[in-house]
Simulated scan of single mutants.
Amino acid sequence: MTAGREVCPLPPWGVSNGRTVGSVNIYTCGKGTVGGGSATCLPSKEWDKKIDTTCTPILAHPCKNDSLCSEINGYCSAKGQCECEPSKIYDETSKECVVECADGWEKFGVHCYLFNNDPLSWEKAKIHCTQLGSNLLKVEDAPEHEFAKAKCAEYGTIYYWIGARWSTEYGEYRWYDDTVMNYTVWSPGEPDIKRGCVDMLVSVDWAWNSHHDCSNTNGSSICEKG
């Protein structure tokens, strides 16, 4: 098996004329010829008789719409095959299309992050991130928070704006797009009666702090895209 290539499993019963065999359709792995009794893998895969699993769609797989390609975060191109959008690359580790991080951006998982130390208000930081094709950081889980926390400490300022603020419509803190904050790391006593925006604060080990002034208080910020 060629090193560095994704495995394209061969059903244990073999290939049967390019048709669906049992629960495995060989078209998922490669190109079959009905009646010809043969199948070839796509360039990034090869048959492995030792593995008995169902194949998964990959880059360059034939397609008619985005349904198949969406499983690798791609789209069906005019060539009739799954491709990554121009702003993305195919990541061999995660087996999906991911944003290619520009210089100055930090990569974590399939996202890119910019830790901007130029002092901006929360509102201006939000606009700045949007102009860069991103948004203020939306923390989805503990690993992402730990990544942001480590980078905040590395870059060495007092606090960083993230993408949460008080929503008068919903009467609670929400992310910039009004989605619910299912994961939070509020510092002790937070959020308090202040109805403003949120930062990660060094004095509480980068836990989250509510701040009343989103328009005039300037600080560092974190942009995220991907």
Rank of each mutant, 00 (worst) to 15 (best):
K49A: 15
D199T: 12
A142Q: 15
D192E: 02
Y75M: 04
C112T: 05
V98P: 02
G80Q: 13
I162V: 06
P9W: 00
L59V: 04
C97V: 07
E92Y: 14
A148M: 07
C152P: 03
W105E: 06
K124S: 05
A3L: 05
Q131I: 11
C112L: 02
C41Q: 05
I26D: 01
T179H: 10
I51F: 06
G219P: 03
P86K: 03
E46G: 03
F147C: 06
K225H: 08
K79A: 15
W186V: 11
H212K: 13
T54N: 15
K151E: 12
S70P: 07
A102W: 04
H61W: 13
V34N: 06
L10F: 03
S210R: 06
D66V: 03
I162H: 05
C76W: 02
E71S: 13
N209S: 11
G4I: 08
E144I: 08
G219M: 00
V7F: 05
W122A: 02
R195L: 08
P62D: 09
P9T: 09
T157R: 14
E154R: 11
A207P: 05
E146W: 03
K194S: 12
N216G: 07
S167I: 10
I58F: 14
H111P: 04
N65L: 02
I72H: 01
P119D: 09
L120I: 06
A142V: 15
W161M: 01
W206T: 02
V204G: 06
P11M: 02
K79M: 14
P119T: 00
M181Y: 07
L120W: 06
G163P: 02
K225T: 03
C55Q: 12
Y90V: 09
G226N: 01
T93P: 13
G14Y: 02
D177N: 09
L201V: 14
T130V: 14
L201T: 10
L10G: 04
M1I: 14
C214W: 00
Y173W: 04
I58V: 15
N218S: 13
L68C: 11
W105Y: 08
W166G: 04
I162N: 04
R5S: 12
W161H: 03
T28S: 05
L10N: 09
E169Q: 14
A3F: 09
G219D: 04
I127T: 14
C101W: 01
D213S: 13
C223P: 07
E140F: 07
G104Q: 03
K95F: 04
V99D: 03
K149V: 00
W186E: 03
P62S: 01
M200E: 00
T53I: 05
Q81H: 12
L120R: 11
Y159P: 00
